[in-house]
């Protein structure tokens, strides 16, 4: 088992997904079986191979520094589960 319950708890926290204590064991098993399976990549010698950076060879185009913009406040906040006079709102964040 490459991944134990504490690891699952940790990565679930990093991913901001609540998992119950009961789910930890089965999840650890699932994730481990997949990670064990990908271990086979170790067979391949990739010593001098460069990791792929762009899928098809092309240069990245750049945008001109032009503002194409009307007030999007409504469009941007329209789908918000909650909002208050143009602000998104969340449970208070304590610094």
């Amino acid at each position: 088992m490459s991944v134990d319950e504490n690891t699952v708890r940790h990565i679930a926290r990093l991913a901001r997904i609540a998992v119950t204590e009961e789910e930890l064991a089965p999840l650890a098993k699932e994730v481990s079986s997949i990670l064990d399976w990908v271990e086979q990549l170790g067979e391949v010698n990739t010593g001098h191979v460069a990791p792929m950076t762009s899928v098809v060879e092309m240069e990245m185009k750049m945008r001109e520094d032009i503002v194409t913009h009307e007030d999007l406040q409504d469009q941007v906040t329209r789908n918000a589960p909650v909002s208050e006079d143009g602000f998104f709102t969340v449970p208070k964040v304590v610094e």
């Binding site: 208050e84 602000f87 969340v90 304590v94």
Partner: peptide
């Protein structure tokens, strides 16, 4: 953080 007792505004 100072606009509302229980909410932060974004």
């Amino acid at each position: 953080h100072d606009q509302h007792p229980s909410l932060s505004f974004v």
